[in-house]
């Protein structure tokens, strides 16, 4: 209640170039989706490299993939899916003007994102310890050591860029939380929450593909 009363003070800030708040919201949504398409193509270049090298060196990719920790990867997938749920609930709360719920769900999402990054850091640390980081110190036992390095190069670039997107997402969500505390969002104006939600789900989506592609190659073979 107090959230609504407080929110009423703020009117949807509208740019002078727009005629209506609805036009502004439509424009933001379309702009966000186009941005997500650029993200698809950005990760697409990496998926292209992955496809080519997995096609050329299936055995090396399988052998290298077995050195990733399925338990940690699976846990992280679950953590991200949970964070997607809390994010969509946050968007839902902002649409209904529930300020308390919005703030709670935003903080939960940030925490789950933090858990993901923490686990990711542990995994990367293991790779450092095991000399699976590409470069001069790279060590890999088996017939396909050179091509296995390709796998780990892609692993680090893909998970690294994904993690970078997570960090940016957490930054955005932190800003949203502060703004939500100040009562910036109302049922009439919640576009930023909506847009950050789209971004967060997209980052989740990338991971939904990264998990089977990186962690689950020919697991039955061992």
């Amino acid at each position: 209640m107090s959230a609504e009363a407080h929110g009423a003070v703020f009117h949807a800030p509208r740019g002078h170039q727009f005629d209506t708040a609805e036009q502004q919201k439509d424009a933001s949504t379309l702009g966000m989706w186009i941005f997500l398409v650029t993200e698809i193509m950005f990760f697409g270049g990496l998926f292209c490299c992955y496809l080519v090298y997995r096609w050329l060196y299936p055995a090396a990719f399988a052998a290298a993939s077995h050195h990733l920790d399925v338990a940690l990867g699976g846990f992280n997938t679950a953590a991200l899916i949970c964070s997607s749920l809390t994010m969509v609930l946050a968007v839902n709360a902002s649409q209904h003007g529930k300020r308390g719920a919005l703030i709670a769900f935003l903080i939960l999402t940030i925490l789950l994102g933090g858990v993901f990054l923490g686990v990711k850091a542990v995994e990367w640390h293991h790779k450092f310890v095991d000399h699976h980081v590409p470069g001069p110190s790279f060590l890999f036992e088996g017939p396909d050591a050179r091509q296995a390095q390709l796998f780990f190069s892609l692993y680090f670039v893909m998970t690294g860029l994904h993690a970078l997107h997570m960090v940016i997402g957490i930054g955005l969500l932190t800003v949203l939380t502060v703004q939500a505390k100040r009562g910036k969002f109302t049922p009439e104006y919640n576009t930023p929450v909506d847009m950050c939600g789209l971004y967060w789900h997209f980052v989740d989506l990338i991971w939904i593909f990264l998990f089977p592609l990186l962690y689950l190659i020919d697991r039955h073979a061992k």
Partner: peptide, 25 residues
Amino acid sequence: MVLGTPVIAVTILLLAAERAFHIGI
């Protein structure tokens, strides 16, 4: 611009990573 530019962005990123760290891509 929207569909193509991201691909050159990631390609150049890989190029720079390859040159800096010799990751093999």
